[in-house]
Design a protein around this nucleic acid. Structure first.
Lengths: 236, 236
DNA sequence: CGCGACCTTGAGTAGGCTCAATGCCGGTGG
DNA sequence: CCACCGGCATTGAGCCTACTCAAGGTCGCG
């Protein structure tokens, strides 16, 4: 269920979390912050490519991604895979878990605190919005549109600043074309050809599991409509 | 964004809400119940087929569906439509709204109340799980599998008892094949042919915008795997 | 050097799409 | 009572998008 990168740093106190500096996250009061600290039970460093928890069987814990990236996916018995969404630093995962009862405690603690009460729900709602987008794409957009839309979306998420990036418009995520395919609901081959089209048109460049946007305007056109919404959000 | 049925009854006090009797909803303490009552600001009766709120622009309110049914959808500029999910009695809608700030008050009220605090989140998580399922379907299942899966899912939701139903295995929702198509990410014609296959195999029967499951076992086989999860949930 | 992971490309197929026509009600107005 | 119309379901035909199978090609690594 995950494919994070590293996590060299460990046990950073919430107060000094580097993410918190980013403008994408809403400022917390000292009080809120110290309360959140309270909830933190540890850090988990995961090997790249390892499973955080088995598909479906979801864990009884809640996590905030601190560094690296991951994705949630679902498998069909015969191996077909659908990637549901990507998780970047600052994302809160685990709510979708089916064993919600077991994490009732942590959520209640979080929610009972004034100001934070709203935040969990806000985050849940946001991830639902992203899923809505994704579903629209996979259900109704052509391969080219889907592809453009996803690349744009990924770029936007990366540009929120939570992930290190060398140059603007450059997205350095070790994504395989197979990952893209499984996200888009396309075959690997067709995904490759579609990327090929985008590359021949000089809209993007794909190189070694990372890509660069050369013509964002065009990409947005192809994507169909909005990209929107880098709104400030809480960091739990 | 909605297509509810009726709502002849109005202003039913929460304490006497007929839905609450259903075993699918977790029992509330008198105290919780009276608190929920407090939050209820009214009932909204909507014409069948009318829009509850414009796509995207979502409203600043939260609703619990009391009777009838509705669905959430998204449109592409050129008119392609993707139905995201269906809402039956007991479902809580509005969280996906982008103007979350405006409903901060209602959510905080809800969450600050012991016991209920967890419920909002639980409901949000559940609808995310359903979206996950849907995305898997649309992204990776064949037309036949998708179709089977959706019909099964709808049947299960209806069997939770919140919607009146004449006979078991019979789902009386005025769904057009166009609705199904837009849910499944298929064309109307292909949806029709796929239903046709299911009918020729005597797995289901489709009649006048409602359907009946004749061979649930087979339908489940075709659907790929699980149907699962009629778990007890809170009713807000 | 061989192997594994990933990207590319060709060829043939098929699942699903579009266009178009037809059938079937149920409602409405003449 | 009937003709007409609109909404929905059904069916045929032809096309095209996306899929599968199958080869390579490149690069990094043991």
């Amino acid at each position: 269920m995950a494919s994070p990168k590293d996590g060299s740093t460990r046990q950073v106190p919430c107060e000094r979390c580097p993410l918190r500096k980013l403008k994408i996250f809403r400022p917390f009061t000292a009080e809120e912050l110290s309360f959140v600290s309270t909830l933190k039970t540890g850090e988990l460093t995961v090997e790249a490519g390892s499973m955080l928890f088995l598909e479906g069987t979801s864990s009884a814990h809640l996590y905030t991604v601190l560094s690296g990236w991951a994705f949630r996916y679902k498998l069909l018995p015969d191996g077909r895979r659908q990637i549901l969404n990507y998780c970047f630093p600052g994302d809160f995962i685990g709510l979708q878990g089916s064993v919600m009862n077991e994490m009732q405690h942590s959520i209640e603690a979080l929610e009972s605190h004034a100001g934070l009460s709203f935040d969990v729900t806000w985050l849940a709602a946001r991830s639902e919005q992203i899923l809505d987008q994704q579903l629209l794409s996979v259900g109704r957009r052509s391969a080219l549109e889907r592809c453009a839309h996803l690349l744009l979306h990924l770029a936007q998420r990366v540009e929120e600043g939570a992930l290190p990036t060398r140059a603007p418009n450059k997205v350095r995520i070790p994504l395989t074309q197979q990952h893209l395919a499984d996200t888009l609901g396309l075959s690997l081959v067709h995904t490759n050809r579609t990327l090929g089209r985008l590359m021949r048109e000089r809209v993007i460049r794909w190189k070694e599991q990372e890509f660069e946007i050369l013509n964002r305007k065009r990409l947005a056109e192809l994507a169909g409509d909005e990209g929107a919404e880098p709104s400030v959000r809480p960091l739990l």
